[in-house]
Design a protein around this nucleic acid. Structure first.
Length: 202
DNA sequence: GCGACGATTTCG
DNA sequence: GAAATCGTCGCT
């Protein structure tokens, strides 16, 4: 893996650092380019109660155990899709959830998919980001780094200074509130709002 | 086979 | 605050 992407394959224990380094990277698909402003790190089996891979591999999480640089796309709440970049060595599950970004290319195309929304809200939230990119379940398991799939991950046009990165608890997770594995660019208007997990009513 | 529960968004 | 809406996974 070239183009400065080798850090994606770092050991799963380094997943928070890997997530941080993805801020400012650009994701392109179907005519839209998004600059990542908010991400979350998820570790593998037994290490992270909030990770889909926490209890070991399942049919859904198979791709998380594969090589780094592939897309892990999952369905949530009966209506939304979310996109992760699979990280770590093959066999170890870890991934970075792409939570939000700034649309820096193809704003008109993004608007067609998202409807009339302020520019900063086009990719503000993981499901909105997926919709803006025009991808879906077909992208699950495809490479984001070799051009063979609809997605392409590229280095930042502008670097993000390390001191511009803030960290906090992940959004909407049921447990592991003590783990500050959500990272975002400080003060960026495209970063989504923090919401704590809300249990369903009986 | 069944049922509880989401790494969310949108509307009221 | 609460609904919408359905695939997944563990088994109450």
């Amino acid at each position: 893996m070239d183009r400065g992407l080798s850090f994606l394959s770092a050991p799963a224990s380094a997943i928070p650092e890997t997530a941080k380094r993805l801020l400012g990277w650009e994701v392109s698909a179907n005519g839209v380019t998004v600059r990542l402003t908010e991400v979350e790190a998820y570790a593998g089996t037994g290490e992270d109660a909030a990770s889909h891979a926490h209890r070991g591999p399942t049919p859904r999480t198979q791709v998380m155990f594969g090589p780094a640089g592939r897309a892990y796309v999952y369905f949530v709440f009966g209506m939304h899709w979310c996109l992760n970049v699979v990280c770590g060595p093959e066999g170890e599950a870890s991934a970075v959830l792409l939570r939000a970004g700034e649309v820096i290319g193809g704003v008109d195309v993004a608007r067609e998919r998202r409807g009339d929304a302020p520019a900063r809200e086009l990719a503000r939230g993981p499901a909105r980001l997926v919709k803006t990119l025009g991808i879906g379940p077909d992208a699950n398991g495809t490479s984001m780094v070799d051009g063979s799939g609809p997605l392409r991950l590229s280095p930042p046009s502008r670097p993000v200074p390390p001191d511009a990165v803030e960290a906090g608890p992940r959004v909407g997770v049921a447990g592991a509130h003590d783990i500050p594995w959500r990272f975002w660019i400080s003060g960026d208007p495209t970063v989504s709002a923090y919401r704590r997990h809300s249990p369903r009513k009986r």
